[in-house]
Amino acid sequence: MITTDWFLLGAPWDCSGSGRGEQAAPAVLRAAGLSAMVSRDRGDAACTIDSVERDERTGVLALPETVRAAHALAEYLERALEDLPGLRPLVIGGDCSILLGIVTALRRSVGPVGLWFLDGHPDYSDGPASDTGETADMELAVLTGIGADSLVALAGRAPMVPASAVVMLGHRTSGLDAGSARELARVPAELRRIDAATIAVDPAAAGRRAAAWPAGPDRKMWLHLDLDVLDGDVFPAVTYPQPGGLHWDQLAAVMEPLARSPRLLGVSVADFRPDLDPTGVYAARVLVLLERVLP
């Protein structure tokens, strides 16, 4: 059991519209025992996406459906926060663009928030530059005010999260292809970063350092985990695995100071592909991580 301080909310969201696997993650993790680890299970938001049409003007895949899904997830999370005061949300995706709905809800329910963003990629592309147009390539850019107008404005006034209120952790900075290098170069200088190689040297110290950012003790923070922050050999059940990532103990050590911060609002977990986990071994390992890390 994690603690009774959490409620579970599923976000079966696959921004590719292809049903390739991420959208099954909430159900599979429940079947593996996740519901029993929290106080309440609020079920799934109606945020599935099945369009594979790419918007001609913005280059974003499934743009109208993504806007709809973001609002649906935001409204579902807002109701849960209102109904369950004192409990913190554990939102299980789906892919990383569930953050578009999560942060919209937080802005309306809480006010200004910051983001601890654990991900193997910067997710700072845009529609025209992305090979796929998937919002999981670009959600951090959108959250910080760069992207299609209908996405940037989801919570009203942009940016949803100032770049100075984001800490990006676990991204790769060596051996990048040209497209990945260009994406990393787009990240604003004021957005704080601790890359995978730095974390690997002393994960606990990296976590404590990130927990002290952004400045301002009153800014509440959301912790987001994309499981591709793990090395592809350690956790291959993701859409875009990479080498040079973290191992399980390193990931736990960097997360623990963040998960125990008094500023923590909640946690989201994304990019688990049950279709790439036929024996269930990786689903079980995700639950072990959450049980270890979440207070």
Rank of each mutant, 00 (worst) to 15 (best):
L290M: 11
D14F: 05
G133W: 06
D83Q: 14
R30V: 04
T239Y: 07
R108F: 07
D83N: 12
P243N: 03
V167H: 09
I49C: 11
T239V: 09
R30D: 09
R273K: 11
L34G: 02
T144M: 08
A252D: 12
G179W: 01
P12C: 06
G207C: 07
M160R: 05
M168Y: 10
L100V: 05
T132D: 10
E65S: 00
P162F: 05
W222G: 10
E75G: 12
G216T: 00
T239E: 14
D44H: 02
L81F: 08
L140Q: 02
P26R: 01
Q23P: 05
L289V: 15
A237Q: 12
Q23M: 10
A270Q: 04
D202C: 08
A189Y: 09
L34D: 02
A205Q: 09
S180M: 03
T135W: 04
A284F: 11
Y240G: 05
L151C: 08
L115M: 12
V187F: 03
A253C: 09
S268H: 03
E56I: 00
V67H: 08
L191H: 06
G43H: 00
S39I: 09
I194L: 07
G19H: 01
D131N: 14
D228S: 04
P89T: 00
V269P: 00
A283Y: 06
P64K: 01
G147Y: 10
G21Y: 00
L151M: 10
R172Y: 01
E291M: 11
G179T: 00
V142K: 06
W6E: 04
T144Y: 13
T173E: 09
S39D: 11
A69C: 02
L84R: 05
V167E: 06
R157T: 14
V103T: 02
A252M: 13
G133L: 05
V91R: 01
T4N: 12
P64M: 00
A27S: 15
V286I: 15
L230N: 08
L100S: 14
A200M: 07
V254N: 12
W13D: 04
T58Q: 08
P112I: 00
V234K: 07
V142G: 13
G114Y: 12
R193V: 01
E134C: 15
A212Y: 09
A24N: 14
S150K: 07
T135H: 08
E56A: 15
W213E: 15
A32N: 13
A27G: 15
V288K: 10
G21F: 05
M138N: 06
D202I: 00
R30C: 07
L287G: 10
D271H: 11
V103I: 12
S39E: 11
E65P: 02
P217V: 00
R285L: 12
V229P: 06
L191F: 07
D131F: 09
C15E: 11
D41V: 03
A46R: 09
L87K: 04
E53G: 13
L9S: 00
G245H: 06
L289G: 10
D55C: 14
L100H: 13
D231Y: 06
D50H: 12
V269L: 15
P214C: 08
M160S: 15
A148M: 08
L8F: 06
